[in-house]
């Protein structure tokens, strides 16, 4: 192994150690599945490593990796759309079945799965990473208005699910 390549691998290893948990958790929130999250995280880091000589010289390698993660996730979802059942139907029917049972717990991943992939990505960026509207728009390559609109729509969808079935979201009296 050449010295430069060895140094690149060492730098990259440090980068993964510093950011791996964060990206993996983001991937988990996006996919809702441990295996898919592992695949997504590794695919992200593989692409990052392939461009490492340039990424490492950038202001924020993490920003590059985050964008790659989002693009890979959204691309993957798009490619899978042919073979997927609409997740909304199954979960809403699930919700209806248990709607009368307030003790039924709804996992947060199930609630997130009711969202369109882009809306889910926006929720993860805005509410998990605390990214601003402007930053989220930049990360996703969409307008700030789109972020706001889709964010409102996503929350409107999540709110009744979580308030009905998730501990800590009980409806509070105004």
């Amino acid at each position: 192994m050449g010295m430069k390549r060895k140094r690149s691998v060492e730098e990259f290893t440090t980068f993964v150690q510093e950011t791996g948990a964060q990206l993996h958790r983001a991937a988990l929130l996006l996919t809702g599945d441990h295996h898919l999250a592992e695949d997504l995280t590794q695919a992200t880091y593989a692409k990052t490593f392939a461009a490492w000589s340039r990424v490492s010289a950038a202001d924020s390698p993490l920003a590059y990796a985050r964008t790659t993660l989002l693009n890979t996730y959204l691309s993957h979802r798009r490619l899978r759309r042919n073979s997927e059942q609409p997740v909304d139907d199954s979960l809403f029917s699930h919700q209806e079945v248990h709607a009368t049972d307030p003790t039924t717990r709804l996992d947060l991943f199930d609630a997130l799965a009711t969202l369109a992939p882009l809306d889910r990505a926006i929720v993860v960026l805005r509410y998990w990473e605390d990214r601003s509207v402007a930053d989220a728009a930049h990360d996703l390559g969409i307008t700030q208005e789109t972020v706001r609109t889709r964010s409102r729509r996503a929350l409107a969808r999540l709110r009744p699910l979580l308030e009905a079935h998730h501990p800590g979201f009980e409806r509070t009296t105004p």
């Binding site: 990259f12 290893t13 791996g20 993996h24 592992e38 590794q42 880091y45 593989a46 490492w52």
Partner: peptide, 16 residues
């Protein structure tokens, strides 16, 4: 949630 960072690194370097 904590990934296996060693496996993640090795797999990413190979795939990259």
């Amino acid at each position: 949630e904590q990934p296996d960072l060693r496996q993640l690194t090795e797999g990413s370097v190979r795939a990259g």
